[in-house]
Design a protein around this nucleic acid. Structure first.
Lengths: 209, 209, 209, 209
DNA sequence: TATGAATGAGACTTCATTCAT
DNA sequence: AATGAATGAAGTCTCATTCAT
């Protein structure tokens, strides 16, 4: 475990330090929760000393907030670009974007974020607000817009598009939370992607007029 | 003005105490998370002193575990009895039980539990296992059985019943987690029950053969 | 263990309570030390509830002090009477009294006292003073007087009688301390009374003119 | 007037710290007993903060155990070397080594150890065992060997050499215990070394054939 | 008298943060 | 820029003491 870090140390460029620390922070905060994750652990995982963390981040709280912002923003931009590009009917669009999100939330380090934010929302109101504004609402509008288009085209039946968007995303986000909480204790993992299949098919078929 | 509280200081009410403390614990753990919730806070909310908490629970960890067990078990029994009683086709059954769960997870003190368990799974493996065994798997089989029946009757199309059950429940559980995390920061609360409506209709319509 | 206490409860007269508590206190203080012995343990061993201890003793400190006084004083009176009664030359007298002390400090519940007093002297200066005045000095004078007589009679060589008394008693007291500290960990117990034999013979032969 | 201390607050002296803390621990444990000595006191006496103690020792118990080991082992090695070097008949040898032990147990910081170990034996069985094995038995054999030689040479009368060794050492160890317990309350201190004189003369004369 | 539930001061221990090197 | 020894506030837990019953 240390070997891996040691090996990388050599080829690591100085400019990556803050990023590596944020990666370590996300991993640790995901695994242990904000309070139980120690700065020492983050430093160790990042391959630096405790003091170095404080060189780049004023405090544990600042580290946490920086981590959320850093992980969230680039991802959001990418996501919104996809919509503009995609073509096809609403059902196809919905499916394509859902797959992108599913992948990001299952197979990138981003997958730990929802659990962390949800768990610490009560203790970090400004992070919660930030997350709602910059992720929740934007993602919801994204999907709502697609659904609205589907309804406008007569493809979907009439429902509240934002509520429908919420239903649609909840199953995907829930899977990400699950992955970092009870999945290891459940003999029925999410790795088989039938879960997503069923969700997409039911949701879209159910929505179709 | 402190008189009212002071007067009750030395009340002896052994019978109620453990339950009151567990209620306070659920509330605090839900709000702050396990580590950030202080025993002092729990005691204060329960209307007792710190020492009294330790009179009934060996440690903070024991309190947490007792709380989960206490909140989970009676609820599960109630839930399973409902299924036996209900009549009608699978779609109706699904809807009826979903409504029960929705109510329990939105309007009773149980609603905080999923967030707590999910947030602390990594730090309390045995609680995680306990929860998976006693809640997750049982609830999943419950719904899987209904879905299976629907498929057997030709009412539903063929899919993995357990995965479908997982999809079905995830939206409901997610709403409970949301309620105790980002909902207060979201101008679009779950209180309007259109969310559940859409989920039920889409899921069931989508599942119908 | 409880059986024994329960059985006695019936035939126990109320007037014995304080005495039973003091006995329990001596046992617990000997075994655990003053600070580590809990009032709960003392109460349990005495077969009463914690509250009852406070009925008879104002505080833990008061209990400790009462215990020392109670155990010490009657014993001292007994000891001093023996000297007046005994007859014979100084060597014989020395031996006789030494045997009495040895017995008391090995086979009665008094044996735990020296260890307790020695261990807590720093924390209870007034108990330390009390013990020095009422036990140490009196015992020392007792033996010093006998030794002085021996010197006066030409039976013993000339040395400081008080220092000689101190040498004489130290081996006996040390055995009592040992019994309640390292003896259980030593494969060579004091039970064989050769230790005392050698001490008496060496000391007396060495003192003889 | 606090300046002098304050100025040193952030000194880094890793090399010396553990030793200084162990010295402070011995002093405090001797004076107050294990339980009554607070880590704060030890830290204060060592000139560091509470946290620093935990930097070097995992717990109060670990500190205690480390202290005993640290103080005991070097002393034992020194002691055993002395025997090999000394020459003369058994009586002379006995006297010489006794003087060394007397000095060590009266005038070095080691003198507090016997009281501490004796007082805490019941609470620290492994320390008690360690002490018996590494000190008690080794010292006893040391003296037993010398006494045995004396008997072999016809210099001493026949007695159990280990029991005789125990008698011989008990007076010396007792003096060390006394020094840190009741001596301050006794108007007859051990500083005048007549106590040792009488013990040595009586014991040796009494043992001679 | 006797009980034992309730209290809260106090001790151990952790860990975010500081700062000399 | 980087380190890691040192700090001390804060939290868990214990237990002597109180008091309603």
């Amino acid at each position: 475990m240390m070997q891996t870090n040691e090996a990388k140390k050599w080829q690591r460029r100085k400019e990556d330090r803050p990023g590596e620390i944020l990666d370590a922070a996300l991993a640790l905060f995901t695994e242990k929760g904000y309070t139980s994750a120690r700065i020492d652990d983050v430093a160790l995982r990042a391959g630096v000393s405790k003091g170095t963390v404080y060189l780049y981040f004023e405090s544990k709280e600042a580290l946490f907030k920086a981590m959320v912002r850093k992980k969230v923003l680039p991802q959001m931009e990418k996501a919104e670009q996809l919509v503009a590009v995609h073509k096809g009917n609403s059902a196809e669009l919905l499916e394509k974007i859902a797959l992108q999100w599913w992948f990001a939330l299952q197979h990138t380090d981003l997958s730990g974020l929802p659990k962390v934010v949800v768990a610490e929302a009560g203790n970090f109101p400004d992070i919660a607000s930030f997350f709602v504004e910059n992720v929740v609402i934007r993602v919801r509008s994204l999907f709502a817009k697609i659904i609205q288009q589907g309804m406008d085209m007569g493809e979907f039946r009439k429902v509240s598009p934002t509520e429908a968007a919420r239903v649609f995303t909840s199953a995907i986000v829930f899977a990400a939370i699950w992955k970092h909480s009870l999945a290891p204790f459940d003999n029925m993992p999410f790795e088989s992607e039938e879960y997503l299949q069923i969700h997409l098919e039911n949701f879209i078929r159910g929505l179709q007029a």
